[in-house]
């Protein structure tokens, strides 16, 4: 029984690390700021969720401390609630200040620019 939980924890950590790595490579390789932010959203979603579920299982089954398990759950929820607000404001700011980074990559369609730049 314990060995099955241990295996589950390891699998969850590997899956979380896989998606966090995808987000990091995306931040480095995507062409402009908005696409980079899209790729980086992989990190706080499946990366954080999988690794914190692994942490909760470890704290509950091996350390036997409900206290640490609940704290990890609260931390994961806080990241999930606050991250989209930050992404939204950074994306809007980068767009409005015209600092997207890649001039030759056209947005198609660009309804936001059409409605607010005239």
């Amino acid at each position: 029984m314990m060995i099955a939980v241990r295996l589950l924890i390891d699998v969850l950590i590997v899956v979380g690390a896989y998606f966090a790595l995808a987000g990091t490579i995306g931040i480095l390789k995507m062409p402009d700021v908005l696409c980079r932010m899209q790729a980086s959203t992989c990190i706080p979603t499946l990366g954080v969720i999988c690794i914190s579920i692994a942490g909760i299982l470890y704290a509950a089954c091996f350390l036997h401390s409900a206290d640490n398990a609940v704290k990890i759950a609260v931390i994961a929820l806080m990241i999930l609630f606050t991250n989209p607000i930050g992404s939204h404001v950074i994306a809007k700011g980068a767009y409005k200040a015209d600092q997207r980074g890649a001039k030759n990559l056209k947005l198609n369609p660009d309804d936001y620019g059409r409605d607010f730049n005239e």
């Binding site: 995306g26 908005l34 696409c35 992989c42 198609n108």
Partner: peptide
């Protein structure tokens, strides 16, 4: 929905970030 979108994004990133066609829709 989150799992589906994450798998798609991981495919795009590990495929070399070539298949991007960004745009803003209303």
């Amino acid at each position: 929905e989150l799992v589906k979108a994450n798998v798609n994004m991981a495919k795009v990133v590990y495929g070399g970030c070539k298949a991007v066609k960004p745009g803003i829709v209303k």
